[in-house]
Each structure stands twice: as C-alpha cells, then as structure tokens.
Write a protein that binds this DNA or RNA. Structure first.
Lengths: 233, 233
DNA sequence: GGAACCAAAAAGTCAGACTTATTTGTCACA
DNA sequence: TGTGACAAATAAGTCTGACTTTTTGGTTCC
C-alpha cells in the first residue's frame, strides 16, 4: 500500500522514518552515518542518500565532525505526505488525526465555496454521483462503500476549487476519513444529518451558490471536529 | 538568506530546483544522472543525493533503464518550504502568491479563533505589541517597520492557535506578506482599515472572543484577496 | 586565565568496478 | 502475419576504499 520501497535507501527510510517521527530518538540525539550503514547492512552511499532525504524533510540535520542530529518536532515538514503517513502509522496517530481534522475544518469550507464558482459540469456531475453513492450506502453496515464515495466526494471538492494547495490535501483528507472510519465509528451507520449535508453541498455547488456551499461544508467539518471532542464551547 | 547551500549537493539543488519548478524541463522530460553529474561538475554520488532529494519532493521520479523523469506539476509537494521558495523566486511567482493567499484566507481566520481560546497571557501581550507597532508605523512611508510588526503579528496568531499544521505556515505567510509589500503597495501607506482590524483582532484574542477574532481576521484576509483581484462577486 | 595551536573524528567527496532491472529489438515458430 | 521467447543494450543502483575538509575539544605556552 504505502511508501517508497523503491531501492535500498527506501527500505532504510521505511524503518528510520517511522522511528524518528515516533520520537524514538529524542531531539538532539546524534546518529552516525557509518554506524547506521552497519546497522541496516547497506553501503555508506545508500545510507547517505537516506540521510539526505530525512534532511530535506527537516527531520535531521547533518553536521561535520558531529553527526546526524535529530531535530525537534517543530522543525519537521509536517505537510510532507511521507511524514504524515509515518506519524499516522505510529503512536502519534491520534494527535496527527486531530491536527489534520482542524486543518480540514479551515480548508474544506473555503474550497467548497471556490468549487461552487469554478467547478466544471463534469465535476458537478461527479459530485452529485458521489453524494448519491453515499446516500445509497448510508444504511445497513455498508461502511466500505460509503467511505469510498465519501473520499471521492471530498477529493472532487478540493480539486474543483482550482487551488493547487487545496488540491494537494486530497490525499491527506482521504487518509483522515479512512482512519476515522477504521477506528471510531466502525460499527455504526453514518450520521444521517451528515449524509444530507453532503447532498446539499453537491446541490449548492451545482447551483453556483458559493456562500451556501461554504456554510454547509462548515457544518460537515464541525461534525468531524465534534467526533474528536474538539468543541467550540 | 535562503536555501541550503550546505554541501555540494545543495549547490546543485540551488540550480536544478528552480529550473525544474520554473518549468524549464517540461513534465516527462528525461534527465540522466551521469550527464547531470558532468554538467554540474560533481561526482555521481553527489548527483545521486541531489536526485534523491528532488525525488522526495516528488519533482522527479527515477526509474531504471529510463532515467530521471520530471513529474507533472500536480505531483509536486507544493507545501515543501524549499519548493515554495523556488517557485516564489521564479516566473511562477504571481500564481504562487495567489494560491498561498487563498490558503491564508482559509487558515488564518480559523487560527485566530483558536488563538482566542488557547493564547497565553504572554502571547496576548506580544500580539498587542505587534498591533501597536503596526499603528505606530502606519503613516509616513515606514513600510519596513510596519512589515516587521505585521509579519510578527501573523506569526503569533498562527503559533498561538496551538495547531502544529497552522504554526508551520508562519514562514510561508511571512514570505507572502514580505513579497506583497515589496511589489504591489510599496509606495503607499497601508490601508488604515486593515491596521484597525489588526488592533481589533488583538483585542478579541485577549478577550477570548473566538467568533469575533475569526470574523475580524476573515475581513483582513478578504482585503488581501481583493488586493490580488481575487474577488467574491 | 586566555589565546593559539594541534590532533582526532565524522561528514563530505571522488573514482571505478560491478550488479540488476527494464526496455527494446530480433528471430523463430505457429 | 502475428506472437512469444530470447538476447543485447542501457541507465540506475550498489559497493568499496581512499582521500579531503570542517569542526570540535583538548593541550600547551605565554
């Protein structure tokens, strides 16, 4: 499913990346390239490539005569899909899921508003199809099929916004939605109110009603926040 | 000021990164590692490290027997600070500035709302100081000092939100604000209404009035959108 | 006690030989 | 004529060993 895997250096990253993002090496820890190369049984060149990638993610900094230093969390490129995946796979998963859901609550309503202005006829059709698919699978433990349409729905919204920054969050949102279904609400049918909201958003986008699309999407994301007990008291 | 520079591979990236993000090599273009190494007069190991970094940014994909293929724009990690810097430095600057401003308009109001709930007394004080600094430099062509406080203001809002994803956008917002001043409005004094809004946001955050902080910040970002002729008709 | 100097350590760089996967082209066979 | 298997070419991938450069920390001398 996930990650690079391509090449030896990718194999090393699959182990080292999750370890670092899991906080296994506290910030300030010093690693030595040669020792790592030995530990992973690869040549120094391969290990150097792996370190370079970690460095470009700001997970570590390499300094002469010192070694490879693990950087504090606030330095990390937390928008790097790879980093996000590593963190979602580790103990930081709940916190990562929360921060991503808050990000969603900021981005998706605005994206929906823009989609209402910029969506093509084709995108409107696809959006409606997704909403209908959600309705059709909203009862009777058809969570897998429901999730499929839910993910597709949000992906269309984000790409139809016409903003590349929003569009690039589609994969992240997909993983949040998938993760939520697979952990919290796995056994219950989805909230009927949420399903209705999706249908209404599709309508609003089709009608070109930006304000309404934004407001309705805001209600959807508020629901997502409440699921995680992130409330506005 | 900017970029890595550290090491030979960094030097290579300083040239290759901007070239690729500028679209100098159309998507699908094939580069060969050996040829690049020759062109930049570095060893293959160094060039491989550079390619690995570009690969982790999803700017290129390396495949055996084929070469290093330039990926289409929609694959790029557009949230990577390095990529953002490269694009801001090139011909794509206006478009990049626009998409980032739209992102700001989505994120900052929500961040301000969260800041109103989570900001410490110290952060509130700093925010007020920033707002006052803006007022003090809002007249008489003191744009540099004004910008300094403006940048600091937005940085405090984003970090005080308590959300790591928002906090990591502080540098990006800083560059947008700086870029805007250095190009568009360089010679005019800032809009008095905008200055007032900043003061009011600081007040709202201090008072813990999340809804008001969010609404006022929304007005600020709407102004930023209007400056770039991104309107809501 | 401070400044200059020296030695060690670890990353950085390079060159060359070798391996492996993938593509493309060719040839034989149906 | 089309199709499948096989062979050759190609470029990335890997490994090794020697060398360079920077930085740090200690030591010595004034």
């Amino acid at each position: 499913m996930s990650t690079t895997g391509r090449g030896l250096h990718g194999r090393v990253l699959d182990t080292l990346g999750p370890a670092i993002t899991a906080g296994e090496y506290p910030p300030g820890s010093v690693l030595r390239t040669d020792e790592l190369a030995q530990r992973f049984d690869v040549s120094r060149s391969v290990m150097r490539e792996a370190v370079r990638v970690l460095e470009s993610m700001h997970l570590v900094a390499s300094r002469r005569r010192v070694g490879v230093t693990v950087l504090p969390e606030q330095e990390w490129n937390v928008y790097d899909p790879q980093v996000i995946r590593w963190r979602l796979a580790g103990a930081a998963r709940p916190r990562q899921l929360r921060s991503l859901t808050v990000l969603r609550s900021a981005v998706e309503p605005v994206a929906a508003g823009l989609a209402a202005r910029h969506a093509t006829a084709e995108q409107c059709a696809e959006l409606t199809a997704c909403a209908l698919g959600m309705v059709a699978n909203s009862r009777g433990h058809r969570l897998e099929a429901y999730l499929f349409h839910d993910v597709a729905f949000h992906r269309v919204i984000l790409t139809a916004s016409g903003n590349e920054m929003f569009a690039r969050l589609a994969d992240v949102v997909a993983e949040v939605l998938t993760g939520r279904t697979q952990h919290e609400v796995m056994f219950e049918d989805p909230d009927p109110a949420a399903v209705t909201l999706h249908v209404q958003v599709a309508e609003a986008v089709r009608a070109g009603d930006a304000a309404r699309a934004e407001q309705l999407t805001r209600e959807i994301t508020v629901g997502a926040l409440q699921e995680l007990d992130i409330l506005a008291p």
